[in-house]
Write a protein that binds this DNA or RNA. Sequence first.
DNA 1: ATTTGTCTGATTGTCGACAATTTGATTATT
DNA 2: AATAATCAAATTGTCGACAATCAGACAAAT
Lengths: 218, 218
Amino acid sequence: MNNNLSKFSLKHRVAYEIRKSIFDGKLEQGEKITESQVSQDLGVSRTSVREAMLLLELEGLLISSPYKDTRVATINQEEVLELLLPMRVHIETFALKKGFPTWGEKTKEEFEHILENMKKAVHFEDLSTFMELDIQFHELIVTSSEMDNVIRIWESIVHRIRLHFLYQNRKSGTLQKWLSDHEELIHILVHGTSVDEAVDALGKHIMDTNIPDVYLLE
Amino acid sequence: MNNNLSKFSLKHRVAYEIRKSIFDGKLEQGEKITESQVSQDLGVSRTSVREAMLLLELEGLLISSPYKDTRVATINQEEVLELLLPMRVHIETFALKKGFPTWGEKTKEEFEHILENMKKAVHFEDLSTFMELDIQFHELIVTSSEMDNVIRIWESIVHRIRLHFLYQNRKSGTLQKWLSDHEELIHILVHGTSVDEAVDALGKHIMDTNIPDVYLLE
DNA sequence: ATTTGTCTGATTGTCGACAATTTGATTATT
DNA sequence: AATAATCAAATTGTCGACAATCAGACAAAT
């Protein structure tokens, strides 16, 4: 288990590990996952796994049937495209409006740092790491609003969108395109002065990078 | 503890009781709440209380500080008005668009039934029951979409809005006004034929009944 | 007087054991 | 043969006990 996260409580670290298994494809859609198995695998008690799985259920990544089993959620394209994505745009642009005016040099450096790591990830064609960095990037926007509940709500939907994105892009390897998209956006965020421009760019970015091409043809 | 909910697991029933205490004013904003106390009061183990409190934390009703304490959340008007309410409108109108075309007589009777109970609650000037019915009403709209994740996300924000509404309306007793608002809306939902009209009415209803008058003057 | 260290009580975090429920296989009944 | 009743395995639900951490009071050192 990843010990770099030791400042977080056990349930959060366990949740992180399970999420990772899902996003890395070790757990497929609809596959069964049991508390005792995860408990053994990670060497922690079932209680902690249970709380972690409750978190993941509320993120829409797992679906539990009482006394029966718990399975990895299947995704519903309609739900993601028509409900979750617009909600995510609304949350992130709200956070951006609140946070943008308060950003200092430190925040801007964090954005640049993420961009640097993205370049490295692209160089090694490491999709998993790239997606992790993408989450960090958007999380930075959300946390910079410094409103606790905003990040909580964001977390309750973003992982499900990520799952949809993952299943969409399993084959197509357009890492280079995503990199330049982020490069452009981060430039506007870090060097731009207009909030409206930043908000606009962020909204477009989220929709563009998550809506599959085929869907646009209709 | 309310035993009418015995089909739900213990953590959900405990969560229901704590929510009730908050909405009935037995627990104030910022007040400390401990797992062991609730455990004793309700006669259930701390484990179940703990899971219930985790649910409530993710609904934004409680805020926990690790190893320290857990408190009833304070509300942030800006967050509710600019973030949560628009999100709620988006969720409920989405659910309405999906569900409306599928409603049968049974669903319509359920709406009428809730309306009847609202009338009774107004007659007895029972604000607590009226709000419970309001939640049931909106929940019916959301569940009628038959998309599991929609109700999950709705639950993650609606209780916090309700808390804001409660603190806004502690004194002013305009129950009669709320009743006629609901009466009008339910008429459109049950007897109307146009989805667009229903969606429009629902959106206006949510915003109107939750935005305090003073806010509109600015 | 201020800082530093130590103890103590309160509270949350983690654990292993046992209870309850579901499912499917097996057996009994008609 | 079809149906009903019973059992066993797997899994989640609930529980009480112990561990870890934090805040504040109090004492010790400077």
